[in-house]
Amino acid sequence: MTEERPAGGRILPFAAVFAGVLIAWYAGAVLLNAPQAKAMLPAGHAGLWVLARASWTMQRPELPAPQQILFTLGHSVFANPLTSPRNFLYHMAVTAKETLAGLLLGLILGIAVAAGIIRWRTLDRSLMPWVIASQTVPILAIAPMVVVVLGNLGITGLFPKAAIAGYLCFFPITVAMVSGLRAADPLALDLMRTYSAGNAQVFRLLRWPASLGFLFPSLRVAVALAVVGAIVAELPTGAVAGLGARLLAGSYYGQTIDMWVALVLSSLLAVLGLAGVRLIERLVIARRGGRL
C-alpha cells in the first residue's frame, strides 16, 4: 500500500510553519527589544503598535527583525564590490571555499582509508574501532589548536580551515564507505571470482558502484560538518575573513544585525551544499536509470 497523499501536498504545511516562525520572530523581537525601545521612546508614547515599530527598527536590537537582516544583507551586497570585506558575499565565498576544500580532502582521505580497511583485515581490526569511536568524541575541540600549531609552522589561510573541515568529514565518510564497499552482493562477488578478477577490478567494477548508495547520505552529513568546521576554524585566527570571523567580530562590537546576517548566510551555505549533493546524487541516479 502506498501512502496516501493528502490534499495540500507539502508546500502548504511548510508555508504555514514558515509563516508561524515569522510571526513568532516578530513577536519575539517585540518581547526582547521592548525594554530598550521603551527607554528610547518619549515617556507616555508607549502605544503597543508604536512600541512594536520601534522594536523592529532598532540599531542594536537583542533580536533583529527579519526585514532588518535582509536589508543589511542587501545593502552590503549591492553597495560594495564583491572583493570588499564589507560585502557579506565575500565572506560567504571565503567560507564556501574552505568548506569545499575540506569536503574534498575528507572525501579523498575517507575513501582511501575505507578502501584500505576493506582490503586489509589487519587495518579493519586495528584502525576501524578507532574510527568508529572517534565519532563519539568532540573532534571539533582540536580546531583552535590545529589552527595555532599550523600558524606556528607558517601555514595560514585556506589550508588550516580546510584541514579541520576535512578532518570532521573524514569520519562519517569513512564509516559509510566501509559499509558501502562491503555492500556488494555476495553473488556478484562470487561472479567476479569466477572471472578471476583482480582486487582493483573488483573495486572499480563492483564495490565502488555498490557503495554509492552509502556515500551520498554520508556526504549530506559531511556537508553540514564541513560548514561547521570551516566556521569554527575561523574563530581563533584573529578573524579577518569568512562568516565565522564576521560572526565573532559582530559579537565583539555588538553588531547584532551583522551577526544574524552571518548566521543566515552560513545556514544558506549549508543548504546550498546539501542541494549540491542532492543534485550530484540525482545526476548519478539518472545515469543509472533511476536507482542508486
Binding site: R10, L12, P13, F14, A15, A16, V17, F18, V21, R220, V223, A224, V227, V228, I231, V232, L243, G244, L247, L248, G250, S251, T256, M259, W260, A262, L263, S266, S267, L269, A270, V271, L274
Partner: peptide
C-alpha cells in the same frame, strides 16, 4: 510542515548561534 523544517535545521551550523 515541521518535518522538513526540522530536518533542515538539523543540517544547519547551529553552533554559530553561540554569540547570540
Amino acid at each position: 510542515g515541521l518535518g522538513p523544517f526540522a530536518s533542515l535545521m538539523s543540517a544547519m551550523p547551529i553552533v554559530a548561534v553561540a554569540p547570540i
